[in-house]
Amino acid sequence: MQPLEPSKPMTRLVTRRRPGRDRPRREGDVADRRFRLLTAAFASTSVVLLGAMALQLARASKPAWRRFGLGFIGGQHWDPSRELYGALPFIVGTVASSLLALLLAIPVALGVAILLAELAPGRLARPLGQLVELLAAIPSVVYGLWGLFVLVPWLRVTVQPALVETLGALPLFRGTPRGFGVLAAGLVLAIMSLPSVAVVGRDVLRAVPASHREGALALGATRWEAVRLAVLPQARAGLVGAALLGLGRALGETMAVAMVIGNRPELSGSLLSPASTLASVVANEFAEATDSLHLAALSALGLVLFGVTLLLNLAARLLVWQVGRLPDGARRA
């Protein structure tokens, strides 16, 4: 996992020279400047790529916006055979499955982060942290396979009948237990977004100055009290950022969701019914879409997803950086 904030500019002879201002006049400096410009050009690829993606998606989706206008976003029906395209079922499916995932993942991830950053001795924290990072390394399609053949049957046979029996009065748990659906997608997403939330959360907690923690402990606080009173309040913004990063990941997650959510573009208030998300419908229909309006509508869904994840990431990064900028340079190693 990368550190969360750019290191402070070091007192270094080389980088202190501000590009373009104190222009060096040594022999060979022209070559040095060329080298710097070359690397700058490479560094600009990320900027260019983000811009190009936005532009390209906007261009590819133009026919859909022209045909449906902003009503596309609120449109409730998606039926390629009748050339009827609306994004609402997918937006609802995406939001529902991701929120469910975060609801399940955040408390657990917070516990993991606190254990790794505050409670476990270093000997244990390192290998445990690496195990959690391994969770993030397993490809999403493998989680999908596991979801398809292990999680979904278990939900259908064991969990969902019990849910219907006990909570069936609530519209949220109405319907026949099929296994496939929002609940399965939410669970898989929770499992998949947990490691990244936990690892970023751990790094955020570690960025809180050690003196705060030590002060609380010196005043007689227990370990938990030190965490609750001295560390968590300082880290709150960063932890929200970690959760938003997890949300961004969940919103854009494609394969595992496509394999367990049931893929039906319907609006339904139940967690048990099949649904579809922005990412999963693009994965399912894009390669087979032949007429241009269908492609444009799918690209428009992509643009919506791109915009939402971009905003979420922006907000999350700003929040996480903020904790790194806390006063008092003393950090815990």
Binding site: L57, A60, V282, T309, L310
Partner: peptide, 11 residues
Amino acid sequence: TGVPSIIVGVF
């Protein structure tokens, strides 16, 4: 790093 991989595919 946060852009969904499917979006890269569409792009």
